[in-house]
Design a protein around this nucleic acid. Structure first.
Length: 217
DNA sequence: TAGTCTCA
DNA sequence: ACGC
């Protein structure tokens, strides 16, 4: 793995807000390793469409790896150490995932980020995620690291209140977004994925979302 | 309010 | 807006 200081932030990084940064193309050099690891996770914990508390079916298909996994059903959102679909623990987080998340957080100024969950979202054309906050984690002091792979998407970067008009941020293969501190509770989402083809993923966009959900110890 | 549906 |  590359030393922290070898990552060249001069490329096309964008600061969205204080505590929120797009690291342009940071994951690109290890894209195949990430996708290979994803294939291994997917074998034990297949993608599935979750139900929201409101009763709607999410258009994005999800799976997890790590000590816990983010799940949603009619009773609400939660982090569960067990995959409800299989009754078994989620697959372990691949080292290439953990390393990238820590490097990205570091590059954005958040030291010693040790994620215990990676929520993996699979977008097919038309799939979207409406504006929401990540608020199910025990300690909101830890940042969020979000990695884009495959087809491009429009990321919606809102404000601290739902009514704040979101900015449209184009994200492409290999981009990494990190937010924390004052930006930790920012409303965000993803616009409906456009049709397209990517050499490594075909008609799919994957998003890896790293979080620390559980208290330390 | 991690959903859909309607109306200007 | 709606209603879960």
């Amino acid at each position: 793995m590359l030393p922290l200081d070898l990552y060249d932030t001069a490329s096309r990084d964008v600061r969205l807000d204080e505590g929120a940064l797009v690291l342009g193309g940071m994951a690109r050099s290890i894209d195949r390793a990430l996708l290979d690891a994803l294939t291994v996770v997917e074998r034990d914990a297949p993608f599935r469409h979750l139900l929201t508390p409101g009763g709607g079916l999410m258009s994005v298909a999800m799976t997890n790896c790590g000590a816990v996994g983010w799940v949603s059903d009619r009773s609400g959102y939660r982090y569960d150490p067990v995959d409800p679909e299989s009754g078994k623990r989620w697959p372990a987080m691949p080292a290439v995932f953990t390393d990238l998340a820590a490097r990205a957080a570091n590059a954005a100024g958040f030291r010693e980020f040790a994620p215990d969950v990676c929520l993996i979202n699979r977008y097919e054309p038309g799939a979207r995620l409406s504006l929401h906050q990540d608020r199910d984690e025990h300690d909101l002091g830890h940042p969020i690291v979000s990695v884009s792979l495959g087809l491009p998407a429009i990321f919606l970067w809102g404000g601290q209140q739902r009514v704040d008009r979101p900015r449209r941020v184009p994200l492409t293969h290999g981009d990494v977004v990190v937010w924390g501190g004052p930006a930790r509770m920012t409303f965000h989402g993803v616009r409906a994925l456009a049709e397209g083809h990517h050499p490594l993923t075909g008609s799919i966009r994957y998003n890896l979302t790293f979080r620390r959900a559980l208290p330390r110890g």
